[in-house]
């Protein structure tokens, strides 16, 4: 109970307003579906994040953990959808060269391989 309120009715009004605000901000966390393709140069990940604007998408790497978070304009069960997923990265990823883009509700994250992880062909001399 808010001690500043002297009138009981006012207090109840305030509480119900706060509850309403809370409802608007409620979110539901959903794992986005992903396709991962690996080739000799990089690993490409395609996440489905419908309804998320590019400014509401965050891609972070901390302690070799790649975290994806996207706030969608869509709702499920009356709650705003938040797509969230994490992956552990190995040492073969060049973290400084990771880049991402969104297009038609699909987030593409490209994880280039570090030079050490690439296949180096060594020429054999006679």
């Amino acid at each position: 109970m808010n001690e500043k309120c002297t009138d009981k009715e006012k207090c109840e009004m305030k509480q119900s307003e706060e509850k309403k605000e809370m409802k608007c901000h409620e979110t539901i966390e959903i794992l986005p579906l992903v396709d991962i393709i690996e080739d000799e140069h990089a690993m490409t990940m395609y996440f489905e994040i419908p309804g998320a604007k590019p400014e509401n998408v965050s891609v972070e790497v901390a302690n070799h953990i790649l975290s994806i978070e996207a706030h969608s304009c869509l709702c499920r069960k009356g709650r705003q959808i938040v797509f969230r997923r994490c992956f552990q990265l190995g040492t073969s990823t060049d973290i400084s060269k990771i880049h991402a883009k969104t297009n038609d509700g699909v987030l593409t994250v490209i994880l280039p391989k570090s030079e050490d992880a690439k296949v180096h062909k060594i020429p054999i001399s006679e």
Partner: peptide, 17 residues
Amino acid sequence: CCCKNDEVKNKLIRHER
């Protein structure tokens, strides 16, 4: 679909879509 052709299919390591 990015993985229609066989070449890409072979490189898929996770396919949920």
